[in-house]
Simulated assay, not measured.
Amino acid sequence: MTETSSAAPIANVPLSGVIGMPIAHSKSPRLHRHWLNRYGIAGHYVPMPVMPEHLAEVLRILPYAGFVGLNVTIPHKEAVLTLADVVTDRAALIGAANTLIFRPDGKIHADNTDGYGFIANLRQNLPDWQADAGPAAVIGAGGAARAVVASLLDSGVQELRISNRTKIRAEQIKAEFGARVVVYDWAQVGNMLDGAATVVNSTSLGMTGKQPLRVPLDALSPDAVATDLVYTPLMTPFLTEAQQRGCRVVDGLGMLLHQAAPGFERWFGQRPEVDAATRAAVLG
C-alpha cells in the first residue's frame, strides 16, 4: 500500500540574483546571504554570468523559474531598459537600471537605486551633510556618474561641476540635466575643486588593479566632503590624500550596501538594515 502525505505543499522559495559578465568578483551574494540569514528568510541569491547575446532569453525564462527579481551590473545596465516592460523615471533619466522586479503579471519592472545608495551612504556616515552647502564636483561622466549627478541635483545641489577625460560625455550630462551642471576641461579638473563642498570620484581610477586617479587636490578645501565610489581598497589614494588635507571622507562600500536594500525589500518583503554587522559580513 502506498503511503500518502497529508502535509501542505511547500511554498516556492523566492529566488533572486545578480547578472553581469564577469560576475565572480561581486560582493552582492555575500550581502544578500547575510540579510537572508539575519531575518530568517527562506530565499536564495545567486550570481549569474550572462553574455550580452543571451540577456533577452535569460530575462524571459527566469520569472518562470521562481525568480522574483535581479540586480544588474556591467555590461547589462543599459540594455535591460530596452527589455523591461516598465521603467521608472529615475532609471530612464540615468539611462541605466541596476534593479529588476519580476511582477506577478509577468512584466519586468526596471529601476535604478544607485543614486539612492549614494546619498544614503553620505547621510549615514555624515548626518550633518547638506547638499546646498556649496558646489559639488564630480570626477568622471560614466554610468555611475549619471546616477550621482541625478541624486545630487535632486537633493538640492545648486551648482554641479563635472569633468571627464572625454569631454563630450560630460557635455551630454549637462545637456540632459540642465543649467546647474557646469563642465570643466580635463586639463582644469584641479581647478574644479576650488570652493567645492562635496567632491566625488565616480571613475574606477584608484581601484585595485586600475590606474591611479591623477587629479591635483591642491585646491581642495579642508571643509569639503570627499567620497569615492571605489571600495577596493576602502581607503583609495584619493580619499587618503583628501583626509590628509583635513577633509571628511566617505568610502564607497556603503553605496553598494544601500543601493541593494530597496531590491531586497521588494523581493523578500523585509527592509534590511545597513549597519556595522552588514559591512563586516560583506568585507568577510
Rank of each mutant, 00 (worst) to 15 (best):
T4K: 11
S5Q: 04
S6F: 12
P9Q: 08
A11I: 01
N12H: 10
P14Q: 03
P14E: 03
L15I: 02
L15N: 10
G17F: 10
V18S: 01
G20V: 05
M21S: 15
A24G: 09
H25P: 05
K27R: 15
P29E: 07
L36S: 13
N37D: 15
Y39T: 06
H44Q: 15
V46W: 05
P47K: 08
P47E: 04
L55W: 11
A56I: 04
E57H: 12
E57R: 14
V58K: 09
R60P: 00
F67M: 06
N71I: 00
H76W: 11
A79Y: 02
L81F: 07
V87F: 06
V87Y: 09
T88Q: 09
D89V: 08
R90E: 15
A91W: 06
G95H: 04
T99S: 15
T99M: 09
T99K: 04
D105Y: 05
K107G: 12
I108V: 14
A110C: 01
A110D: 00
N112R: 03
G117Y: 13
F118C: 01
I119K: 01
I119A: 04
N121F: 04
L122N: 12
L122Q: 01
L122C: 10
R123S: 03
D128T: 14
A133F: 02
P135K: 07
A137N: 07
V138I: 11
G140C: 05
A141L: 10
G142W: 14
G142D: 14
R146H: 12
A150T: 04
L152F: 04
L152C: 09
S163C: 13
S163Y: 05
S163I: 03
N164E: 12
N164S: 13
T166D: 06
T166I: 06
K167E: 12
A170I: 10
E171Y: 02
K174H: 14
V182N: 00
Y184F: 15
Y184N: 07
W186H: 08
V189E: 07
V189A: 14
G195N: 06
G195V: 05
G195I: 13
A196F: 05
T198V: 04
V199A: 10
M207V: 02
M207G: 04
G209R: 08
K210T: 07
Q211K: 14
V215R: 05
P216C: 06
L217G: 06
D223E: 14
A224C: 11
V225E: 03
D228N: 11
D228Q: 06
T232W: 00
T232M: 07
P233C: 03
M235V: 13
T236C: 13
P237D: 15
L239A: 01
A242M: 08
Q243V: 00
R245D: 06
R245N: 10
C247F: 01
C247I: 03
R248L: 10
V250G: 10
D251C: 08
L253V: 12
G254D: 11
L256A: 12
Q259F: 11
Q259P: 05
A261D: 10
G263V: 12
F264M: 07
Q270N: 00
P272G: 13
A276G: 00
R279C: 07
L283S: 01
L283K: 06
G284W: 06
